[in-house]
Amino acid sequence: MSERQWLREYDPRSYPPFAVTVDLAVFTLRGDDLCVLLVRRGEYPHRGRWALPGGHVLHGRESADDAAHRELLEETGVDAWRSNAHLQQLAAYSAPDRDPRMAAGLQVVSIAYVALAPGLPDAVAGTDAADARWTPVGAVPALAFDHDRILADAVERVRAKLEYTTSALHFVTAPFSLTELRRVYEAVWGRSVEPANFRRKVLATPGFVSPVDRAATAPGRRGGRPPELYGPGGAATVDPPIRRPM
């Protein structure tokens, strides 16, 4: 049998219904807190409960990555293709009991993503949500579906990547001071970081940060020493790693 013959005879109704969704763990810093975007579901299932934002992958029209970018733009107004936002696939979640619709025979698999961006605006509920808010990761209520697990995995991913990558730079806008950068680590890790040791490690890592002309960033400033400011240095990894305080 040729492939063309096989396609003519292929009957998708022979297989159980299947849906793919994307869920987004969107993080930003608000004050001294690492916050995640939550939405209150306006539709069933789990109507009225808080959840991570997300939605279905449009069948035959987009990839999971495209759906994640679309959902991030719809939920936050952030275009990850054209901004300092960072969007990365986290994991796939497919437990048989993860979605109530599975009881009706629909297999629902979610591909979760982590998004990082600096200074995101106040949350605004989308068309299918009753409410939206930024919530400190330490004050998140019980979430719908398996979003508690997804969020826990996402938080640990973000915390771990700060040790060996320059992902902290996605939480700040250049130019920034090393104090601002250190506060990112403290907010994400929930631990104090010793300033002098942090400064030494950052400046000793080739390509982590790049000095910015202080005079150019403070035109018209008179008297006093302008602050030392930096921008991204182009490196993606930190070697040796900056270890989390225990």
Score class of each variant (00 low, 15 high):
residue 2 S to K: 00
residue 6 W to G: 06
residue 8 R to G: 09
residue 11 D to N: 03
residue 14 S to M: 04
residue 15 Y to N: 11
residue 16 P to K: 04
residue 21 T to A: 13
residue 22 V to W: 00
residue 22 V to G: 03
residue 23 D to Y: 01
residue 28 T to M: 02
residue 28 T to H: 01
residue 33 D to G: 09
residue 34 L to K: 01
residue 36 V to L: 02
residue 38 L to F: 05
residue 40 R to K: 14
residue 40 R to Y: 10
residue 40 R to A: 09
residue 48 G to H: 05
residue 50 W to Y: 13
residue 50 W to D: 12
residue 56 H to I: 14
residue 57 V to G: 14
residue 61 R to M: 12
residue 63 S to R: 06
residue 63 S to A: 11
residue 65 D to Y: 03
residue 72 L to M: 07
residue 80 A to T: 10
residue 82 R to K: 12
residue 85 A to P: 02
residue 87 L to R: 00
residue 88 Q to W: 02
residue 90 L to E: 11
residue 92 A to R: 15
residue 94 S to T: 10
residue 94 S to K: 09
residue 97 D to G: 13
residue 97 D to T: 11
residue 99 D to C: 06
residue 101 R to Y: 12
residue 101 R to N: 12
residue 103 A to Y: 13
residue 111 I to E: 14
residue 113 Y to L: 03
residue 114 V to E: 01
residue 123 A to Q: 00
residue 129 A to C: 12
residue 131 D to F: 04
residue 132 A to K: 00
residue 134 W to S: 10
residue 138 G to H: 10
residue 148 D to N: 14
residue 150 I to W: 01
residue 150 I to P: 06
residue 151 L to P: 10
residue 155 V to K: 01
residue 156 E to G: 08
residue 158 V to L: 00
residue 160 A to K: 12
residue 164 Y to L: 05
residue 165 T to N: 01
residue 165 T to G: 00
residue 170 H to S: 12
residue 174 A to H: 04
residue 182 R to L: 00
residue 183 R to P: 08
residue 186 E to K: 08
residue 188 V to F: 01
residue 188 V to I: 05
residue 190 G to N: 05
residue 191 R to D: 08
residue 197 N to A: 13
residue 200 R to K: 15
residue 200 R to F: 10
residue 202 V to P: 12
residue 202 V to F: 04
residue 206 P to F: 01
residue 208 F to N: 09
residue 210 S to F: 02
residue 212 V to E: 13
residue 214 R to N: 12
residue 215 A to Q: 09
residue 215 A to S: 11
residue 222 R to L: 10
residue 224 G to K: 05
residue 225 R to V: 11
residue 226 P to R: 13
residue 226 P to M: 12
residue 239 D to S: 15
residue 239 D to V: 15
residue 241 P to M: 00
residue 242 I to S: 10
residue 243 R to G: 13
